[in-house]
Design a protein around this nucleic acid. Structure first.
Lengths: 147, 147
DNA sequence: GTAAATTAGATTGTGCACAATTAAATTATA
DNA sequence: TATAATTTAATTGTGCACAATCTAATTTAC
């Protein structure tokens, strides 16, 4: 029998880890109309915001490295959602931008956040506070990982 | 430019998703002495609690399916941490139990949760509340996924 | 008792996720 | 200016994570 502090339920990281996966699963049916995976949806979210961004910047926004991004972006390029091209200013950099198809997808996506939050069934106040704690935690942990 | 509700920063799931990955990364150096990955560490946490459990139950505890568990448990068996054997009572079931090595590993693991929480730098009160929201969210989302 | 339905775990196929490494381009230094 | 150091994205290798499928065992229905 494990000591109290080693119990699974008391591991905050486990709850985050499991919740992240469960929430991603909740997105799956909502993303069918876009025909994208959850990480791809995140890429689109960023591109709808920026329209054009380097792989490096995308990685910074999503806390993902090029090992993950490159194959994913390639698949999205193949699917007609985005373009990838070398920057003329710095040939090491690859710029990602939306195709018309990718831009159009935003319309279909506009209800998704509401649908998701609705399924959470959380009070507004709790949601705001929870989001704040999450944001702070993410920044703090990311910073720790940078050290 | 994306509408406000489609901005990345406003997606609660993104924060959870990113925080989960960043926290898992924070565990990596702490888990070196055990020579296990984070998901493997979770398996050990459960086994230190239960000592013996079926693959099905393990999956229920960790919200993982056998597609993920079977290869992971095989690797852990190979590493000498646990045994896997068919249940005599129901030959479809596989029981997982700790080896002596697996049991011993608990001692080395006992400081890890403290080390992790220390790195979070969170106030006790905030941590308690955060954990509560996480727990509730996990249950709610899991339930939604069961429907 | 027998056949149909369900269950548990294994397997197959695909998409991440990340550490380490590589090649080319750019920046910093002497 | 030439060389060393750093940066960017791609690649390689390994470990998940999950949907779909399969096989064998067990349970349920008749």
């Amino acid at each position: 029998m494990a000591e109290e502090h080693l119990k699974l339920e008391n591991q905050i990281c486990f709850s985050i880890y499991a919740a992240a996966r469960e929430m991603t699963k909740l997105y799956k049916p909502l993303l069918e109309k876009l025909d994208v995976t959850y990480p791809q949806y995140l890429v689109l979210l960023v591109l709808w915001e920026e329209e054009s961004i380097t792989v490096k910047e995308m990685g910074q926004r999503l806390y993902l490295d090029s090992g993950t991004l490159t194959p994913m972006l390639k698949r999205m390029e193949t699917a007609g959602l985005l373009y990838r091209h070398r920057s003329p200013k710095d040939e090491r950099s690859v710029i990602i931008s939306l195709t018309d198809q990718g831009k159009e997808a935003e319309k279909e996506a506009s209800t998704i956040p509401f649908q998701l939050v609705e399924q959470l069934g959380m009070e507004e106040e709790e949601l705001v506070q929870f989001k704040a704690s999450l944001g702070k935690t993410l920044e703090r942990v990311h910073q720790k990982n940078q050290e």
